[in-house]
């Protein structure tokens, strides 16, 4: 069974649109997400296959609605929780100030 990321050959997507003078990142947080992922991979918190898997098992609606680096951040927090580095509540900041 294929997952939502497996879009090769899928029908119904629109024309490809280029963004003129596209910057490497559209916001600082995107660069931070890339750096964060590199640091955690380097530290062996998870490996690249686990990272990709965490993106690819996102619920399809969320996958399609998320920007590229939102998917990355979602995968990072999924893995941090699954690896026991922090609880989902801590990652969401729900204990901040508590």
């Amino acid at each position: 069974m294929s997952r939502i990321n497996d879009v090769g050959g899928m029908l119904g997507f629109p024309a490809v649109v280029e963004e003129p003078d596209e910057p490497a990142f559209h916001a600082d947080w995107e660069a931070h997400v890339v750096a964060l992922n590199a640091a955690l991979l380097r530290r062996g918190v998870y490996d690249l296959d686990e990272f990709r898997d965490a993106i690819e098992r996102m619920p399809p609606q969320e996958y399609l609605a998320s920007s590229y680096y939102e998917k990355w951040f979602r995968a990072i927090t999924t893995l941090l929780a699954e690896k026991g580095i922090a609880t989902p509540a801590e990652l969401a900041g729900e204990l901040a100030g508590g």
Partner: peptide
């Protein structure tokens, strides 16, 4: 953006 900053600070605090 705020959530990314939060997670970064949390990981730094815990030595990751």
């Amino acid at each position: 953006a705020a959530r990314v900053r939060h997670v970064e600070a949390l990981l730094e605090q815990r030595g990751w």
